[in-house]
């Protein structure tokens, strides 16, 4: 039985394991496919849709779609870049993203994705939604103004911490992350050391008293675009 299959991404032939997703295979081959909700250690959520590629011509989320022998994947095309920009624009106008004072600025994956895609400002009108902040926990804060509903906290708390502290409630544009206690995060089983407290791609769930540790210029995405590490590994 063959343990590898062959496929192409943007014309580049790569080898992959049959149990990989397109995203995993691309990462291993040093091809970066932009993504937001996905996180290596967590079950793919498939909600942000940033990693959408054309797979044998059809749109598929690379984080969900398994590879197949002979698969032809297109990712870095003007069409897909345009759609990805549109998605990032949507996330920026959907919430209240005040990067200028956000603790996560410089290390934020949403911001970094916008930088990588060269977005000066979103093309859509800001929605200025009314969102709740929950600071009841001694060590962790939720600022829902910044939440992009990626589901990482839900998955990490359920699947890694075994606590199910977070869950989505409501639907449509009223969907939000809720916590497993009526009075707020402070009354849940969450601790500051939980994985769920450290997986947020944006500044929505942050550990208190850890902010602004790195000066501007030394933060994760100040000089190198998000995904550079994957691409650099591919150069070797």
């Amino acid at each position: 039985m063959s343990t590898t299959i062959k496929m192409t991404i943007d014309g580049k032939e790569i080898q992959a394991h049959p149990d990989q997703t397109i995203l995993q295979a691309a990462d291993a081959a040093g091809v970066y496919i932009p993504r937001l909700c996905n996180m290596k250690e967590l079950i793919p959520h498939g909600s942000c849709r940033v990693c959408t590629v054309r797979c044998n011509g059809r749109p598929q989320a690379a984080c969900i779609q398994p590879v197949a022998d002979g698969m032809v994947v297109e990712s870095n095309t003007p069409e897909l870049t345009e759609h990805r920009r549109a998605i990032i624009d949507m996330l920026f106008v959907e919430g209240n993203h005040y990067c200028m004072f956000c603790e996560k600025s410089g290390n934020c994956e949403l911001q970094a994705m916008a930088y990588r895609l060269g977005i000066a400002t979103p093309r859509y009108p800001y929605q200025f939604p009314h969102r709740q902040v929950d600071a009841t926990h001694p060590d962790v804060l939720i600022d829902r103004n910044r939440c992009i509903l990626c589901g990482r906290c839900v998955s990490a708390s359920r699947d890694v911490d075994g606590k199910s502290v977070f869950e989505f409630v409501g639907r449509n544009s009223h969907k939000r992350v809720a916590v497993n206690a009526e009075s707020g995060l402070g009354a849940t089983a969450l601790t500051g050391a939980d994985r769920a407290a450290g997986v947020c791609p944006v500044g929505s769930i942050i550990r208190k008293r850890t902010a602004y540790a790195q000066p501007i210029g030394q933060r994760k995405y100040d000089h190198q675009p998000i995904g550079s590490d994957i691409e650099a590994a591919g150069q070797k």
Binding site: C48, R49, V50, Q127, R171, N172, S173, H174, K175
Partner: peptide, 21 residues
């Protein structure tokens, strides 16, 4: 559609609100 969207994915949850505007 805006009312009935489950809100899971970005384009349907946000995009249609922007189309309405």
């Amino acid at each position: 559609f805006i009312e009935e969207s489950c809100g899971y994915c970005t384009p349907c949850r946000v995009g249609n609100v922007l189309i309405r505007e």
